[in-house]
């Protein structure tokens, strides 16, 4: 049986060569002093990069921002996605068209989402600051992307707009896999709408919800595109998350060693997160 290997080998080799190998190399960089334009660099420095990391206020700030960014994005995406899925789950006139329209943002390339939202937030050509000002939410129609206190919220708005359809579609697919007869049986048994939601919809949906939220959390925490496009982490690192901090370190600082140390730290944090989840899952399974 060599056939399956023949079919999967080209894909696997390419993936290994361009992701697995670089991941290992990347982690090794974290222990070296690598400056892109400095040929004398490259020596092993042990844990120096990590010691610097612990003293780096920008890193700690980025870590805090990562939590805010991830929790807000995933939280609101999930909330809006659930509402949409529940509303789209029953047939009504015009459903197909409305569904297609609402899912459209998901198809827009991330960079364009970012640019589009930074234009909307730009008082020169975007309406949002003016509306916020008119509603009394802002003291002046300014660009929140250049306000250190609020800059992170620009990418968050864009992220919610972009990612909500993903949750809506995933949850909708899960909803539609619940057999109709179960609802009918419950209705005959005398369960009201709210009761049916609590005792049928939620238990059926829970596994999908948990998996989707967990995977999405990792994905969102890892995605710096919106921030890179909209604020480049600025002003003055105010909207930096760890992932975008790695990118700006590599792109602007050309300090590959340090960038890799930050990236390795991010991987470690995500691993801890994943292990915590698995432990919680095991504990919950054990309790049953």
């Amino acid at each position: 049986m060599f056939e399956p290997y023949l079919y999967s080998a080209p894909a696997l080799l390419l993936v290994a060569a361009t992701t697995l190998v670089p991941i290992v190399i990347g982690i090794s960089y974290a222990f070296r002093n690598i400056m892109l334009l400095d040929p004398t660099s490259g020596g092993f420095v042990g844990l120096d990069n990590f010691r610097e990391l612990l003293r780096d206020a920008s890193f700690w700030n980025a870590l805090k921002n990562t939590v805010v960014w991830t929790a807000s994005c995933v939280g609101f995406q999930f909330l809006f996605g659930l509402i949409l899925a529940l509303m789209l789950n029953r047939p009504f006139p015009g459903r197909a068209l409305i569904q297609a329209t609402i899912f459209l943002p998901w198809a827009i390339p991330t960079f364009l989402v970012g640019m589009n939202w930074s234009w909307l937030l730009n008082p020169a050509i975007g309406p949002l600051p003016h509306w916020a000002y008119a509603l009394g939410l802002m003291n002046a129609p300014d660009n929140i992307l250049s306000d250190p206190d609020y800059a992170l919220w620009g990418p968050i708005f864009a992220g919610i707009w972009w990612g909500t359809p993903f949750f809506a579609i995933t949850l909708l697919a899960a909803l539609q896999s619940i057999p109709r007869e179960i609802y009918e049986a419950a209705e005959i048994d005398g369960a009201g709408g709210l009761e049916r939601f609590r005792s049928i919809t939620l238990p059926f949906l829970a596994p999908t919800m948990v998996i989707t939220v967990l995977l999405r959390t990792i994905w969102v925490a890892n995605s710096p595109e919106l921030i890179v496009v909209m604020t480049k982490g600025g002003p003055a690192d105010a909207s930096q998350i760890v992932a975008s901090y790695v990118f700006t370190q590599a792109y602007q600082g050309l300090n590959f060693g340090y960038a890799s140390a930050v990236a390795t730290a991010l991987v470690l944090l995500l691993l801890i997160y994943a292990f915590l989840l698995i432990a919680i899952r095991q504990a919950m399974l054990g309790r049953r």
Binding site: P22, A250, A263, L266, L270, A274
Partner: peptide, 20 residues
């Protein structure tokens, strides 16, 4: 392996890929 590569932050391969 394929799943893990999807979970890893892409940013970690940015510098090695540039060097390779």
């Amino acid at each position: 392996v394929m799943l893990v590569t999807q979970m890893f932050p892409l940013v970690i391969v940015i510098t090695p890929i540039f060097s390779i």
